[in-house]
Amino acid sequence: MRNNLIALLVFAVLAASPVAIGGYWTGQLTAYLVYGLLAMSLSLVWGYGGILCFGQAMFFGIGGYIMAVLTKGMILPELTSSYLGLIAAMAGSALFALALGYFLFAGRGISGAYLAIITLAMALVLERLMNNWYALGGYNGLLNVPPIKLNFFGASFELWDRMPTFYAVLAVVALVYFLVTWLLSSAYGLRLTAIRTHPDRLASLGYNVLTIRLSVFALSAAIAGLAGAIFVTLDGFASPTLIGFTLSTEALIWVAIGGKEMLLAAFLGAILTRTAESWLSEIFGDYWILILGIAFMISVVLLPKGLLATPLEKLTGSKRKKTR
């Protein structure tokens, strides 16, 4: 698996990067890693599952709010465990995805353009809802979300300092990456490919298309929920912008520019776009968004597989041929 080798290399470079970029940028990079996780979840559901979701931030936001509400002790003051929060965030997002997915895909399911519009509308609805749900902070969101507290063997450790937080997040992201990659290389991944290209044929072979679609939708939502849960502990607050439309479409841009059909490319797409944004927005000012929009257009038209996926595929593809 040369693919894994390149991924390992990428993660090794990321692990070494704090030495070169210093404290401030390490903090930024931690957030970008979480965005990368969100991008991976979108790549999974869109590029591998064939479900174009225009509201992926819904799951990110749900995870974030669940984490915030639980660890702030808003539900049960004695139950503020970070582990529980992370698990609940993933489970909550996955459950929401299962319900939404069942509604959308069961029977004469919805697909393609219709799905894009409906998920977009759903994201708008949730954003409006959170903006006006005063028990959850409304427009201002929830402040003072505690950092993640790790307990092992009686010792407890708060992810407060930049370096430990960075490495903990990197470890989680790498773990998710390799788990999903392993899953995609199994028979499940084959079924996903089949469902994307020939759903009818797969159905006639006796596979339950709905179950497979729901599973990938829920899995992707769980990953997005995990990303959201981590994210709120980094900045210490959860706000309606996490759940809404802007972040959803940003995620879409990262994944499209990186390459939706390649997990690693989508992940790097998020990190590189965010990095470019913080560098170039200083240079170009307000022109940066214009440039981003145009770059997005060009990459969709000329490089439908993605800006990063095209060279990455060559790299892995050429080596794959040699091994055969």
Binding site: L52, G112, A113, A116, T249, L252, I253, A256, D286, Y287, I289, L290, L292, G293, I294, A295, F296, M297, V300, V301, P304
Partner: peptide, 16 residues
């Protein structure tokens, strides 16, 4: 499906 994405990029550019 790509028209959705490309015109989305266009909308961002026009807005800006």
């Amino acid at each position: 499906l790509d028209t959705i994405l490309a015109t989305w990029g266009l909308s961002i550019a026009l807005k800006q």
